[in-house]
Design a protein around this nucleic acid. Structure first.
Length: 752
DNA sequence: AGCACGCCGACT
DNA sequence: GTCGGCGTGCTC
């Protein structure tokens, strides 16, 4: 064993440690961030070189040799990103190997299959690119007489500077032969370049340039630009009401970074639903833009990733995992709609892309811009304490007034036209007026399916999922009972399985029932529904496009109708039941409802036609509802701060959860109780009296897919305190009883 | 996580 | 007698 060739290697296994391997010189140049194929137990795995192993003493164990290096000169993980990811692994107390793997596009690693090494699913693809030799230009003329075709090929190469050989072959089928000769004569150089494959590039987009900015936008842009030019970390909160033109500020910042030779990342929620947004970036940056979202195939994702890694493309717009995009020399990272829940990853390696964006900017001397009309409480706090500089856009760039928001108190308006209780009279009348004017309507209901429960009228039996502790949702089209947690589907029973009763009654209302009601109430209107059930593939885009094209009068749906782009002819927005979500067992329920209601209301009035929003609710008094009505963000923050303090939560504090799950409910419970005791001891030992432990308690939905779930919550104003307590029991976690898995979830979304 | 080892119950 | 259930331990 050569002690100079020892490396600390991260391997994608759920162990919070690295392993030491020897990387023989014969394998090539080893550098941090490079992938390496290593033997691991009986398996072969793709590991990641972290750093040279400090080999002042010979290891007590036998060191195995790496099999091969998988990257050439360019390590898969650039040095700055490697540093960020190692810090993230530590920050989230998660195995490094899994963190690193999560940051790379899926499918690029070779994996062992049945003793034989499989090729990676994604293969590097190159094409031949021709460029002229320095003296070639002078020799073209001399060639023209004797070999006109060859001279023509050379002329085109000189003209283009560098051209893919395929482009030449298209003009001249014999181009390949001419090129061979030209190369042999030293007139051209044949090289290899990555093959571009950009799924969004096919739709040609007309380029545009920066429009005139409002005074507020110009001020914000100037501040951000100055920070980018300074080349040091700075964090901004861009707080701008809906329609104030935040995107234009982001575009200007990204452009400025580009002018300074720096790259940019723009994180957006659910890009798949917002092709219009991508189009705006494409219009400004053309082919210099990588797009990153869940709708890409592995192949497309890999192509985008490589375009960034090679430095050919320096701007990336994408969903949360784009925070790991290999953008070199990052100038600015934008998090649009920073309050959006989709920036948190809950499965696998749990992280907050918003927090990592801040960390990445801080580590790389870049500028972070968090934008929102309704910033999260945490971000608001960071602006208050000066950790972020607040930039405000208080006027709409379009000069249109914010929509008037009206509340319909459902405790007073019981029932509406046609004997139904979904559309109360005030909303009904507003819909009629809007239809009469030939304008469009969006109705929001945060519940999929026909009805949330099916209840037997003779014995009260409710259908429940076999694997999850929830009732089944009744669906029409296609008919059946569906579990919204595991997706299990059951045919619709004629009779109650318990008492045989024939009368089973749907309770409550989902989007499907709302759609039926609307069709009955407004027979002349063209109505469509948008929710997860109709939005598979490009379905959502198609429906939103119909709305845009004026082929629909009313669109009813779940949160999906709150995203997407502007619809100028939508002048009425209705929230059918503002209370859904307001009383969820989650300390962030009010915050999320306020954000949602504000976002929905903002969909109205994006044109000179004006607009109004109507929120039907049983809780008109609720501060989240009231703040949405008055467009008063500050008022919401004030009341919510007070409410949380009263409940004993640090309003801007941190939470962590230790989640336990397993098939055997008894074992999970026992493990939860044992871990809780350890955590209590640890916090006493660490004198961390500010860390409040809650639990252990069963999760709000105690069983999902047959797995029993328990949790322990940790609450404190400072996350490093929580971390210290959690870190002290990590060893215990690795020795958990069989069948129980434990996960630390930092800053979880749900609560008790 | 995988993967093997190892020790007890029901089958060709 | 072996197949296979899952408890235990290990991976440089």
């Amino acid at each position: 064993v050569n002690p100079d060739r020892l490396w600390d290697v991260a391997v994608p296994v759920p162990l919070r440690r690295s392993f030491v391997y020897e990387v023989p010189e014969s394998l090539g140049v080893a550098s941090p961030g490079s992938r390496v194929l290593v033997p691991f137990g009986r398996r072969r795995l793709t590991g990641y070189l972290l750093a040279r192993h400090d080999a002042r003493e010979t290891p007590a164990y036998k060191v195995r040799q790496a099999i091969s290096l998988l990257d050439g000169d360019l390590p898969a993980i650039p040095a700055d990103l490697l540093g960020l990811l190692m810090e993230a692994a530590d920050y989230y107390l998660h195995p490094v190997g899994e963190v690193l793997r999560a940051a790379l596009p899926p499918g690029i690693d070779p994996t062992e299959a049945k003793g034989e090494l499989r090729r990676p699913r994604i293969r590097e693809r190159f094409r031949t690119v021709v460029s002229p030799s320095p003296g070639a230009a002078k020799l073209v003329e001399g060639l023209a007489d004797g070999a006109p075709r060859r001279a023509e090929v050379l002329r085109r190469v000189i003209e283009a500077g560098a051209i893919p050989s395929a482009d030449l072959t298209r003009a001249d089928p014999n181009a390949a032969a001419h090129l061979r000769r030209l190369a042999a004569d030293g007139l051209v150089v044949l090289g290899e370049a990555p093959r571009p494959a950009d799924p969004f590039f096919d739709a040609a987009v007309e380029r545009d340039s920066r429009p005139a900015l409002t005074a507020e936008q110009a001020t914000a842009v100037a501040e951000i630009e100055a920070a980018i030019c300074a080349g040091r970390y700075a964090g901004f909160l861009l707080q701008g009401i809906t329609g104030s033109g935040k995107t234009e500020v982001y575009l200007a910042a990204v452009e400025r970074a580009g002018e300074l030779g720096k790259g940019a990342i723009v994180l957006v929620p659910e890009i798949t639903l917002t092709p219009q947004l991508v189009r705006r970036y494409r219009a400004r940056f053309g082919d210099g833009l990588a797009v990153w979202h869940s709708g890409l195939t592995d192949r497309e994702r890999h192509d985008q990733w490589r375009a960034l890694r090679s430095g050919r493309v320096r701007v990336c717009v994408g969903v949360r995992s784009a925070v790991f995009a290999p953008v070199a020399d990052l100038g600015v990272v934008v998090v649009d709609e920073e309050h959006d829940g989709s920036f948190k990853q809950e499965r696998g390696f749990p992280y907050s892309a918003r927090d990592l964006a801040l960390l990445r900017a801080a580590r790389g001397g870049a500028v972070a811009v968090l934008g929102s009309a309704t910033p999260s409480m945490e971000t608001y706090r960071n602006a208050e304490t000066g950790k972020l500089r607040r930039l405000q856009l208080k006027t709409r760039a379009t000069r249109q007034p914010l929509p008037a928001v009206e509340i319909v108190d459902l405790t007073r308006h019981r029932g509406g036209p046609g004997g139904q209780s979904v559309i109360a009279t005030p909303l009904h009348e507003a819909i009629l007026r809007t239809l009469e004017r030939g304008e469009q309507i969006i109705l929001f209901l945060n519940r999929r399916g026909f009805a949330p429960t099916l209840l037997c009228q003779s014995c009260g039996h409710v259908h429940r999922c076999d694997d999850c502790a929830v009732s089944l949702t009744l669906h029409h089209r296609p008919a059946g009972l569906v579990c919204h947690y595991c997706g299990a589907r059951r045919p619709l029973p004629d009779r109650c399985p318990k008492c045989g009763g024939a009368k089973q009654r749907p309770m409550g209302t989902g989007t499907q029932k709302a759609e039926d009601l609307l069709a009955a109430l407004y027979p002349a209107a063209r109505i469509a529904r948008l929710d997860r059930d109709v939005a598979s593939g490009r379905g959502a885009e198609a429906i939103l496009e119909r709305l845009r094209a004026g082929e629909l009068d009313i669109l009813v749906g779940t949160q999906m109708v709150t995203k997407g782009h502007d619809f100028p002819r939508v002048t009425l927005v209705g929230v059918l039941l503002g209370d859904v979500g307001l009383h969820m067992p989650d300390f962030r329920a009010a915050e999320r409802t306020f954000q949602l209601l504000t976002q929905v209301a903002g969909r109205a009035g994006r044109s000179d036609l004006g607009g109004r929003a109507i929120i039907q609710t049983f809780s008109p008094w609720h501060p989240a509802v009231e703040a949405a009505r008055t467009h008063d963000y500050e008022a919401f923050v004030r009341t919510e701060t007070a409410a949380r303090e009263e409940l004993g939560y640090p309003p801007f504090g941190r939470l962590a959860a230790l989640r336990l799950s397993g098939q055997d409910g008894g074992k999970v419970e026992a493990a939860a109780i044992e871990l809780f005791a350890h955590l209590r001891d640890a916090s006493r030992r660490l004198k961390a009296s500010d860390v409040v432990l809650l639990g252990p308690v069963p999760a709000p939905i105690p069983v999902i897919q047959g797995r029993h779930r328990w949790r322990i919550l940790l609450r404190a104003a400072r996350r490093d305190r929580i971390r210290a307590v959690l870190a002290s029991v990590l060893d215990r976690l690795e020795g958990m009883p069989i069948g129980v898995t434990a996960r630390i979830d930092v800053d979880p979304v749900s609560m008790l």
